[in-house]
Nucleic acid binder design. Structure first.
Length: 205
DNA sequence: ATGGGGATCGTCT
DNA sequence: GACGATCCCCATC
């Protein structure tokens, strides 16, 4: 008997990240971010990202390399995880050339894999439509913390990205980044990208 | 050795 | 819409 051929799911390689951070950011939309732990696989399609460039005063690497942000200066595709407000983790991927200090922040996923596991990690109070919505929420859902900082997303057994098609009914919306502090010119940079249904004209936030 | 401040989120009014 | 939680990092003394 014949089985339908499994869809080719290509893992995103390090070369993908060796480009300008803004290019990488937009191209990450639609890719699938997954983590694997003893509890199983969980993840979803990337639907919101932001770019951070070393030369921009909102960027963690703006004032140079520190123990906290060292992963931003590592090879393209290196995972950078930091703790904000003492309680939420955020996940990024280093981009462009090694030592550049540029990174893409992943801000939201559309849940795909391991939804029950993600719900368990988020707890009963998590709003169903915000399971992976927001950088802190998605890290909680996928079990991402500082323990994975410095991993290579192209080869790590714990975190991976897979190429994902962008639907014809989806469109990319660009805007200023959320919650950033810095020089007014940097705060205003349109370095946030979202994947939204084409029909939707609804402003978000 | 110390103090200020976050690339957030949920709860409360 | 405002605010408090919470803690590590980093700059400064």
């Amino acid at each position: 008997m014949t089985e339908a051929p499994a869809p080719a799911v290509e893992r995103v390689t390090g070369a993908f990240f060796a480009r300008d951070v803004a290019v990488v950011a937009e191209h990450l939309l639609g890719a699938v971010l997954c983590t694997t732990s003893d509890d199983g696989v969980s993840g979803g399609r990337i639907i919101e990202v932001e770019a951070y460039r070393r030369t921009d005063s909102c960027c963690h690497s703006f004032r140079g390399r520190t123990p906290r942000n060292a992963a931003m200066f590592a090879a393209p595709g290196t995972v950078y995880v930091y703790l904000v407000y003492g309680m939420h983790h955020c996940v990024n991927f280093a981009c462009d050339r090694e030592g550049q200090g540029d990174a893409v922040l992943v801000r939201a996923l559309a849940p795909m894999n391991g939804v029950a596991l993600m719900r368990a990690r988020r707890g009963p109070t998590a709003a169903p439509d915000r399971l992976c919505g927001g950088p802190g929420n998605l890290c909680r859902a996928l079990g991402i913390d500082r323990g994975i900082d410095g991993a290579d997303v192209a080869t790590s057994p714990r975190i991976a990205l897979y190429e994902g098609a962008r639907g014809a009914d989806e469109t990319v919306v660009r805007s200023a980044r959320i919650g950033v502090v810095g020089a007014p010119g940097d705060v205003a940079l349109p370095w946030r990208w979202r994947l939204v249904p084409a029909a939707s004209r609804r402003p978000v936030r």
